[in-house]
Design a protein around this nucleic acid. Structure first.
Lengths: 183, 183
DNA sequence: TTGGTGGGCTAACTTTGTTAGCTTAGAGTT
DNA sequence: AACTCTAAGCTAACAAAGTTAGCCCACCAA
């Protein structure tokens, strides 16, 4: 289960387009990802893109799939390290911060689940379950990790914050917590 | 400190417009919040809105201020209850789920901090600090709460999830955690 | 009466996603 | 060799969105 589910197959040209879209997204942000700008990078005109992808949403779905597959790969790999708990959280943060715009595209906002490769979403989050053995603790830990990362990406934490220590303390809280529920 | 900082003052008509925008946003979602649709609700045409607001971003800033002020009010009020820790978290979730589109607008994505009423953002998060007495635990708890709520709003949790229990377990983990940091 | 102002209007421009329809290069096929 | 099909580009054009320019009118104060 260490390999991600198969993504929707793309023609060679389509894969090239998605690759360029990813570069554009990461270099200039989400609102800069426009079909005309993307086409210009490829040396063609916007309508020509429609020979390769059905619409812009499909392009974004392909990017989301790349994001989830990449994140999932990192997390599954981290499960093999000596301290999987720490490794998964570290990998999560590193991947998100290394690909902030892709991460946000893949995890923020409503998801067009129907268009996504089946099983991919579950697979990318699976390490949290493997880590905790308990769906509720897994989801709580995931929510903590996602909250930390998305707030950091969006610049929501006050300037002088020591996020390394916040990660440490939060991880410790979840690691220590057994199966008991409060109140 | 139980009253929020003063928001940017609005004329009567501008306040009415922002109110209608809020209704439109909450009823039909973020992408439905268009100046033409908003104007139509008010019985006028889109360009007339510019007699009252400088641009669409300013409208969104006003909505974000409402969101932060409303959320902050709920949290500050919760601080006065018998179990402030539980009350703040419950209030956070309830407010977010009652105003999902406003919550997302106010807390997701990069923030135009310069245009926001000064102090408002800090004030709305202050209860987390009052609760924990420690910036790192406060931020961690906030990240957990935000993660839980935004993932729930965006429908990211699997269908059968028991989110009540996830909240309980996560809260318990943070409540129990003292000042110690793990490795 | 006159003049300023608040608050509406239409027309029009730009950007973006998207569709329709044309063209051309190359791969087969007969 | 001629014919055809297809992949992949193109231009023209449309609709929706934010936005600007410029007009008009009702009303209030001097």
């Amino acid at each position: 289960m260490s390999n991600h589910p198969e993504l929707a197959p793309l023609t060679a040209r389509a894969a090239q387009i998605v690759g360029e879209a990813r570069t554009l997204l990461e270099e200039e942000g989400h609102e800069a990802l426009t079909l005309r700008a993307l086409a210009a990078r490829l040396g063609i005109r916007a309508p020509s893109l429609y020979k390769h992808i059905p619409d812009k949403a499909a392009l974004e779905v392909a990017l989301i799939e790349q994001g989830l597959a990449g994140l999932g790969s990192v997390l599954h790999a981290a499960m093999k390290e000596p301290d999987p708990f720490a490794a998964v959280l570290r990998g999560y943060r590193e991947y998100a911060l290394a690909n902030p715009n892709l991460y946000r595209l893949a995890t923020a906002g409503p998801l067009a689940r129907g268009r996504l490769a089946p099983g991919l979403e579950d697979w990318s989050g699976e390490p949290f379950f493997l880590l905790t053995g308990d769906p509720e603790r897994a989801q709580g830990l995931w929510a903590f990790a996602h909250g930390m990362v998305i707030l950091e990406i969006d610049g929501r934490f006050p300037p002088g914050s020591n996020l390394d220590r916040t990660w440490e303390k939060g991880s410790a809280a979840f690691r220590a917590s057994g199966g008991e529920a409060g109140e």
